[in-house]
Computed example of a mutant assay.
Amino acid sequence: MKILVCITNVPDTTAKIAFVDSDTKLNKTGIQFIIGPYDDYALARAVELKEQHGGTVTVLNVGEAEGEPQIRKALAIGADDAIRVNAEPTDSYFVAAQIAHIAQQNNYDLILMGRESIDYNSGVVHGLVGEMLGIPSFSPVMKLDIEGTTAKLAREIDGGKEYLEAPLPLVLGCQEPIAEWKIPNMRGIMTARTKPLQVVEPVAVEDLAINERYSQPAPKGQCKMIPVEEVEKLITLLRTEAKVL
Rank of each mutant, 00 (worst) to 15 (best):
I3E: 07
I3R: 11
C6F: 06
C6T: 13
T8H: 15
N9H: 15
N9D: 11
V10T: 08
V10C: 05
T13C: 01
I17E: 11
F19D: 11
D21L: 10
S22T: 11
T24I: 03
L26R: 12
K28A: 02
G30M: 03
Y38I: 02
D40E: 14
L43H: 07
R45K: 14
A46I: 06
V47L: 02
E48D: 13
Q52A: 07
G55I: 06
G55E: 08
N61G: 00
E64P: 13
G67I: 10
E68I: 10
I71V: 14
R72T: 04
L75H: 09
I77E: 05
I77V: 12
A82Q: 10
I83W: 11
I83V: 09
H101C: 01
Q105C: 00
N107T: 05
N107I: 01
G114L: 08
D119C: 01
S122G: 05
G127M: 11
V129Y: 12
V129G: 02
G130A: 05
E131G: 13
M132D: 01
I135G: 04
S137I: 05
S139N: 04
D145G: 00
T150R: 09
R155F: 00
I157A: 07
I157Y: 10
G159W: 09
K161A: 01
P167Q: 11
P167V: 03
C174R: 12
N185S: 01
P196A: 01
Q198C: 00
V203F: 14
E206Q: 15
E206K: 15
E206N: 15
D207R: 14
N211Q: 15
E212T: 08
S215G: 04
A218F: 12
G221I: 08
C223Y: 13
V228I: 13
T236Y: 04
L237T: 07
R239P: 00
E241C: 06
E241K: 15
